[in-house]
Design a protein around this nucleic acid. Structure first.
Lengths: 138, 138
DNA sequence: AGAAATTTGTCCGTATGTATC
DNA sequence: AGATACATACGGACAAATTTC
């Protein structure tokens, strides 16, 4: 077979197949993928094509490769899950530094600071509060 | 020449060279890079090696390739500049919710919370303080 | 400890498909 | 239609890191 690639190229198809195996747990997170030569035999593709497929997965961060060792299914595996139902509200105000903040910023108590507070909700529940402080410049 | 690649592999060296030309404006943002076959002649490398080099740049987002057309130097160009001299220290402790936090989390005053505080320094100066609060689960 | 086998990394060559000019 | 340029796919060879014996 020379090189007909109607629709999806082979390396993408192979990548998708491997991706599914990882996501479905057929290949467990942390375990090694089959070696390039094994994959080559299974998919009957050239080494270059197999490597292209793996490069895609590596680029997505779902596998990691080490020379001489092999390619692992990533531990934290999964891609960012766009967590539904996540909301975030931010508000901002100017405050005066208390003793603690003043010391951290090496400034005087009472110095003006910007406080930005973000509230993150998941399924309506408040999941975390994040407060960021900066020196007020204006 | 078979494949001696002492030190840096050729495709990286080629990528670096092209990257510099873009950053220095030798190749203007928005303009086309030399074609693969031109680059092949200039660097006396195989097409695969040239393509590996360009893939690096594409991955860094400093070029974009269109089939049949060519590879452009990206407009927004620049990569993330790893701001030198940036430090970050994180510390963590368990605190009891004050009135404000208790209200935000809809819990009682005195409830146990995890406070994670990160201090970000740029050139030694404290640039910002970030505090994150979560319900303590253990 | 050392040699061999395994596995990934780099590089070359060629051929054909597909999109653009 | 033809030329040009990138995309996909195959093959082979040697280098480098790791594991196995």
């Amino acid at each position: 077979m020379p090189t007909p690639h109607y629709g999806q190229p082979r390396y993408r198809a192979i990548a998708d197949e491997l991706r599914q195996r990882i996501e479905r747990g057929v290949i467990r997170p942390g375990s090694l993928l089959p070696s390039e030569s094994t994959l080559r035999a299974e998919f009957r593709a050239s080494r270059g094509t197999i490597r292209q497929a793996i490069a895609l997965l590596r680029n997505d961060g779902i596998v990691a490769t080490e020379q001489g060792r092999g390619t692992y299914a990533s531990l934290h595996g999964q891609v960012w899950k766009p967590q539904q139902r996540t909301q975030s509200e931010t508000r901002e105000r100017i405050i005066c530094a208390d003793a603690t903040l003043a010391e951290l910023f090496k400034t005087k108590v009472g110095a003006r600071l910007i406080e930005r507070e973000r509230m993150i909700r998941i399924d309506g529940e408040v999941e975390s509060i994040i407060r960021e402080y900066r020196i007020c410049t204006d």
